[in-house]
Amino acid sequence: MTETSIPAPRRGVPLWAQIIVWVFLVGLLVIVALGLQRRQQGTVQPGQVIENFTLPLYSGYEVDGKSEIHFADLRGKVVVINVWASWCKPCEQEAADLQQAWAEYEPSGQVVFLGVDYVDTEPEARVYLKKFGITYPNGPDLATRITQYFRITGVPETYFVDQDGVLRYVKIGPFSSIDEIRAQIDPLLE
């Protein structure tokens, strides 16, 4: 008994072409799925240790003469990270409350506020900061590195980080009052 090889009849689309098309489609689906997963993940979640990042500061907002601030250097302090933009109308609702809260907590030296300016232009940002009399350290989110790390869903968003660098609370949207800000900071100081 001998095996005879019968040549397969030729069809319209060669197998290699079909495979390339399928590989391409599967690759595309994987990319879409990863994008959707990232979107559904939302912001970084409370309990997560926040990695170090560097915020360059606008001139006039330097800290101890330094033109940038490293998050890792703030260990031992409560850090309030507020993401804002001058084109963001809801940000204006909370701007005065944030500044008032900063004025209250700054003398203690236990709390640091950071303003992260998202996708903004410096001239407009400066007008905004001046309009609301904001004095806490503020700077642009260069190449959106910080906001990509936090996976922000929009602006404003505020992140409360404790003395150990652990994220404790995320506020999506503007604060309705200064009491809402105090309610997040005070327990972290106890």
Binding site: M1, E3, T4, S5, I6, A8, L15, I19, I20, G27
Partner: peptide, 27 residues
């Protein structure tokens, strides 16, 4: 390159996978 490499690997995989069945069909 990634797509082509994937396609080549799959092509070889399918080829090996389909060969015994083709032989069986012939016999």
């Amino acid at each position: 390159i990634a797509i082509l490499l994937g396609a080549v690997l799959l092509f070889r995989g399918f080829h090996i996978w389909m060969k015994p069945s083709a032989t069986r069909a012939a016999t």
